[in-house]
Design a protein around this nucleic acid. Sequence first.
DNA 1: TTGTACGCGTTATCAA
DNA 2: TTGATAACGCGTACAA
Lengths: 342, 342
Amino acid sequence: MSKKTTIYDIAKELQITAATVSRALNNNPRISKNTRELVLETASRMNYKQNRLALALKSGKSNNVGVVVPYINRSFFSSVIRGIEDELYPKGYHVIISQTHEDKERELKIIQNLLNAQVDGILISTSYSNDEKDKLEPVLKKTTPFIFFDRKLNFPDISSVTIDDFQGGFDATKHLIDQGCKRIAHFYVNNDLELYQNRLDGYKSALLENGLEFKPEYVISLKSDMEAGMKAAERLMKLPLPPDAIFSSTDKGLLGAIKYLQSLSINIPDDFCVVGFSNDPFTQFMEPSISSVDQSPVEMGRMAAKVFLEQMASEHAVKINKEVILPANLIIRKSSSKIQKK
Amino acid sequence: MSKKTTIYDIAKELQITAATVSRALNNNPRISKNTRELVLETASRMNYKQNRLALALKSGKSNNVGVVVPYINRSFFSSVIRGIEDELYPKGYHVIISQTHEDKERELKIIQNLLNAQVDGILISTSYSNDEKDKLEPVLKKTTPFIFFDRKLNFPDISSVTIDDFQGGFDATKHLIDQGCKRIAHFYVNNDLELYQNRLDGYKSALLENGLEFKPEYVISLKSDMEAGMKAAERLMKLPLPPDAIFSSTDKGLLGAIKYLQSLSINIPDDFCVVGFSNDPFTQFMEPSISSVDQSPVEMGRMAAKVFLEQMASEHAVKINKEVILPANLIIRKSSSKIQKK
DNA sequence: TTGTACGCGTTATCAA
DNA sequence: TTGATAACGCGTACAA
């Protein structure tokens, strides 16, 4: 209805000047207790609300932070955002969400757009690409702080928060070996994100350290969905010497494999053990429940936010390049508990 | 590095005035083709980016929309947001996310905050409360468009997008009856959100229309978690005449019940049928897969965004009060397929 | 302690 | 077709 009240309205009402009102509102010491109280009172009576836009324009600080993810309704990403928001909201920041739909072009546009909107920083989990590193490069040269989480790109001077994917891959594989599995296959997701490579490396390393041979035919490249997982499992089981376990870089892919194995009446975990990656919520509800490597998404979000805040605090200092690597936590459930299941 | 270039920088470079630059940039017809091209060229050369903040202050339109939910990492809410963002981003809007943590005080502060940030509208799924209707009321009187989705409050002149919870409850119950279930229990979530009441009403209505008696002892109030679901099921099964089916308003609660029933070696669906509500992703992966009422969250988000856009389009017209009710879709899976399961 | 004046980056109005 | 100027709402350096 009525127009929004500004400090000018309050000033007029009180026969003083807008500057005085501003001072009163901002707890500026250079003002009498009397007028301050008067202003405060009138402000609340007139239902005054500060216009953050004007403040932002004036100060050059919008108090908005952009968060860019492929899709916000993926459990992992929404949880990271949960963490970011939890950490940033109390500090007065608002979180602006954008989804790239796993599209590199769109990602670039989104970043430009956020920059136009004068966000104070951008937290991003980048989309797949094919050697298009350069595309993002010019935009990263800006003064606006960038922080990668989970899916990072290797640029100098850009901070990142990731988990230890190598360790995750290693632990999962080692765990399967400890269960007595001898022929461990791996579901690999084939794109340019180095995190999948790291998990694969962890897998290899665990095999070798434990005297098991690395067999290329046991590594299947697939997309992260059930369908692909079923096909991958089928391919594996038709090998002359089929594996007796799978460590999968994707929970969804693993799910497909499980369905396929069950259709063959293969018992999990007695005949075949599996471990996934991501600890997607559904893994704990399945029967059997699925072991998976947890990525602590909420923690990751909080940490990314903290790194951003640090960056802001050290204002004009040299650009910080902080690489935080969170631990990967293997969650052992029934799907790989051959030894002592209850 | 270098400061951001403004239209003044371009103007100076070209020895013209900022107004002219602005006109060129905005395809204003009142400018010569020559200078326009010159400006456009120089702008891109100097890497000019429009400052949306200044534009927002000037125009009174921020092109930001606030979205308020209890927690963004709940599957349902993150999917609604997915829909909202998908619809709004192409129209040039940015989505600002806030979480109430199911806290009414916080919700109010968040709304004030978003209003201060000059958002063009607020899409909200409200938190539980206890008759605190009034608390939100003053803030809803603002000119800024509000739109409720899923969890609505009954205020005049406020649009809403919900699903037909009554129909959902009715269909789920009717389906159980069709499966031959005679003693159907209901998990009810007890708070002031009318949607749970509507589901209960649908349940009652289906019973009565089909000649089944409504028994209060078959309706259990609980919170939406596994623990509560287990206890609720235990209580039901210790009744002199235990039920043979459950229609639950919450998937998580139902999950607990299923775990309990399975611990009693009760076979689902042969001995006992269950249907949940929300179609949480995990329901389709379980064994047996769980029937549930789908709420089309992404669609709901898109629709809420559309209603907002309509509201914006009809600018100074009378406040629109649009109540969109989307259909509830019962998804039948194994957990309630007693008759013709494959 | 308070008022005056300016600038943040843009667009719109009016005049030239 | 272009220029000059005001205005959006706020905070602050400077002057009083």
